[in-house]
Each structure stands twice: as C-alpha cells, then as structure tokens.
C-alpha cells in the first residue's frame, strides 16, 4: 500500500501537475464556497426588505396589502436561515483549522456580536420617543450600516477585495437610502444591497473556479 505512493512522480510534468491539483483541492476544502456565504444573505435582504418596501411604502398607502406581521417575520426568518447556512458552511471549512486564522475568525465573530448588542440596546432605548415611521428607519439603517462597516473590516483583516468593496457598497447604499427616507430605504437596501451580495457571491465563485 505504502510502496506504491512512495514512488517518485513519473516525470517533472507529472510532479508539477500533482502539486497544482493537490493545492487546488486543499484550497477548495479549506475555503467555503462564496455562493454559500453570500447568497442566503442576499436573498434575505432582497425578499425581507422588499416586503418592507411594499408594505411600508413611501406615501400613505401600502403598495401591496398583506398581514402587518408578515414583512418583519419574513425578514427575521430569512436572516436566521442565512445565519444558519453561514455557520454550517464556516464550521465545515474552518472547524478543524487552528492558529491565527481561527483567532481572527473568533475575534471577528465577537465584533459582530457586540456590535449588534450595542445596536439593540441603543435603538431599543430610542424607539419609544420616535414617531413610528422613523423607528423602522432607525433599526434598519443602524443594522445595515453596521453590516457594511463590518464587511469592510473583514476585507481589511483577510485582504479580501470582494468583501471590502461589498462593505463600501452597502455603506453607500445605506447612506443614500437613509437620506431618501423611510420606505425608500427598504427599496434601496433590498435591490442594491441584496443585489450587491448576490453579485459578490457570483464574482467570488467565478474567481475561485478560475484558479482551479
């Protein structure tokens, strides 16, 4: 059994091929598929914030009639599902790697957790004293803004251009939506934000296919 694979590669070309194939296989198994990372979030934003726009539309009446609990429930269910997919895929790829990458990942995870805790406490305190249409904007603008900044930070940590540019894009889209006001914010975040995530997943996947 050992005797066979103890032999040297047949010739230099075979050796080089073996090196390239093995490095690609290892990289594929150690890096999660970008589609699994970005697409669930893109879909969640597209549908979740899309329903918000249709129900809490700019102007007085809803564009589409639906039960009042539907938009927020859909958004939370889809975000939770996206979180579950990311956690599963991430554990699969990074679970059995130790060292500096694991520490970067853990600290980055803590940044997300503490960031959202801050957001919940702050927005929770302010919600009671704001008019209802601004409460929704406060929560979603803070959450989307924090997501954009953390994507930029992630891009800086891993020198990942796609992640960094997605963070910049989300931040800009969030600022424009916030200036445009309630209703419009949901539309911009759904289409440009969610669409940006879908595009990031596609670009990441294409790049990964290229170098394999």
């Amino acid at each position: 059994m050992i005797a066979d694979d103890d032999l040297p590669p047949e010739d230099p070309a075979a050796a080089l091929r073996l090196i390239d194939e093995q490095r690609a296989t290892a990289a594929r198994q150690l890096e999660p598929d970008p589609r699994a990372y970005y697409w669930p979030w893109g879909v969640a934003w597209l549908i979740g914030f899309g329903l918000h726009f249709l129900y809490y539309s700019p102007g007085d009446a809803a564009l589409v009639e639906m039960p009042s609990w539907l938009p927020l429930t859909t958004l939370f269910v889809l975000l939770a599902a996206a979180g579950a997919v990311t956690a599963t895929v991430g554990t699969r790829a990074y679970g059995q790697v130790a060292g500096e990458s694991a520490r970067r990942g853990a600290w980055y995870g803590w940044s997300w957790g503490l960031g959202y805790l801050t957001l919940f406490v702050l927005a929770g305190r302010l919600s009671d004293s704001l008019p209802p249409e601004l409460v929704g904007l406060l929560w979603s603008a803070l959450a989307v803004g924090l997501t954009g900044i953390l994507h930029m930070a992630g891009g800086a940590i891993w020198l990942d251009r796609t992640l960094f540019l997605l963070g910049v894009w989300i931040t800009v889209v969030n600022l424009l939506g916030t200036i445009a006001g309630p209703g419009w914010h949901a539309l911009v975040v759904a289409v440009a934000g969610g669409g940006g995530m879908l595009l990031a997943g596609l670009l990441g996947w294409l790049r990964r296919r290229d170098w394999q």
Binding site: L18, Q22, L30, V97, A98
Partner: peptide, 12 residues
C-alpha cells in the same frame, strides 16, 4: 502541497 495551501501560522 496540501499543507502549503494553509496560511502561515495555521495548523490543520
């Protein structure tokens, strides 16, 4: 070759 695909300072 597989181990070389890991970033420096990482273990599998």
């Amino acid at each position: 070759a597989s181990l070389s695909a890991l970033p420096d300072c990482d273990q599998v």
